[in-house]
Design a binder for these strands. Structure first.
Length: 313
RNA sequence: CGCGGGGUAGAGCAGUUUGGUAGCUCGUCGGGCUCAUAACCCGGAGGUCGAGGGUUCAAGUCCCUCCCCCGCAA
């Protein structure tokens, strides 16, 4: 079966790898164009492209596949397209090319968490379970009929990073199963229930701002949901303090939300929040590297009793 | 050549402007105090100051080259 794979970030890599391992015939790989990234503005290949090249696969990098990728795709004459976090929207014309259809690996239990950042949103909304859904892509965003699903629990230790890693492995497995059953002709297919659906917008940096009026649990979830990107942060005088890890802390005093109630190498850095307190475990000051709050406090001081915003020295 | 910050004891930092015997907090080791302790007191070990070269009587500090880390922007 002629398969065209479309994917871009690290999440997509296990799916492509699994297809290769399964001996599928991959006739082409579509991924986002190389872009300047990181310090120095060096151009970097997407993780999918890197893997594709090591296996000698032909790589296509249209800016917008629905505009300048259609011809290439048609020439490839795929039986099936597989997408996993490709990052571009497929038009009906694109979807019409593969004979069987387009299978998408989506990192949530659809119809919940449609959109481009399902893993982050699942943690942000304190879901206890999420998972992978394979689906047949249609012209809507994550609205196509569902094929196979597998649940994955979310623990308090999970961050978007760790959970995404877990889900990508599960997704790769489920993708292979899905293709097997499509080939066998016994793959279940179910319409999405529109009344249960949620659509989550793309992540923005501003979503990382910690509002200490919120409950500790919500802040805890936000920190995990936005790790490793875009990362939660607290406002300080003129700048921001990135918060990589935090946890709710016991506190029954009456300090106003946002007040620093402890800041030393023994107790750590604790801030009063809406319903208690939050201990900032791992932080990163501007121009500095990330480190435990306790290590940070060995060399720098934060005033206790003031709002964190004003307490950085 | 996108903009910028930084590499000093096991950890986190100061010291570099105005060269002149390397300092702080914590940890660590030993001793003491205590019912006890993550508390307190006394004492000790631990650093070729990222690498190489240069200037100088003298370089963590000034000059040149290189390596590594990080923030912003994308």
């Amino acid at each position: 079966m002629r398969i065209v794979f479309m994917g871009t970030p690290e999440f997509s890599v296990p799916c492509l790898q699994a297809l290769l391992n399964a001996g599928e015939e991959i006739v082409g790989v579509f991924t986002q164009p190389d872009k300047p990234k990181g310090r120095g503005g060096k151009v970097q290949m997407s993780p999918v492209k890197q893997l594709a090249l090591t296996h000698g696969l032909t790589v296509y990098q249209p800016k917008k596949i629905r505009v300048d990728g259609l011809a290439d795709l048609q020439v490839l004459a795929p039986d099936l397209c597989v997408t996993a976090a490709f990052g571009q929207i497929l038009s009906q014309a694109i979807l019409d090319v593969p004979r069987i259809g387009t299978v998408n690996v989506h990192a949530s239990l659809l119809p919940r968490h449609r959109g481009s950042s399902p893993v982050n949103w699942a943690i942000l909304q304190d879901d206890t379970v999420t998972g992978i859904t394979t689906m047949l892509t249609d012209a809507g965003i994550d609205t196509g009929d569902m094929l196979l699903k597998r649940e994955v629990p979310i623990t308090d230790q999970d961050t978007a990073g760790t959970l995404s890693e877990t889900l990508s492995a599960v997704g790769a497995e489920l993708l292979i199963q899905t293709i097997r059953r499509l080939k066998a002709g016994d793959c279940p297919r179910e319409k999405q229930n529109e009344t249960d659906m949620t659509y989550d917008p793309m992540l923005k940096k501003e979503m990382g701002l910690l509002n200490f009026e919120e409950p500790a649990r919500a802040l805890f979830c936000r920190v995990r949901a936005l790790n490793p990107w875009p990362c939660a942060y607290a406002e300080t005088a003129g700048d921001v303090l990135k918060v990589w890890a935090a946890k709710p802390a016991a506190y029954s005093g009456g300090a106003a939300p946002g007040t620093v109630i402890a800041a030393d190498a023994k107790q750590g850095l604790i801030v009063a929040v809406g319903d208690g307190a939050l201990e900032l475990l791992e932080i990163q000051a501007p121009n500095a590297k990330r480190m435990s709050a306790k290590a940070f406090l060995l060399g720098r001081q934060i005033a206790v009793g003031k709002p964190l915003k004003e307490a950085m020295i």
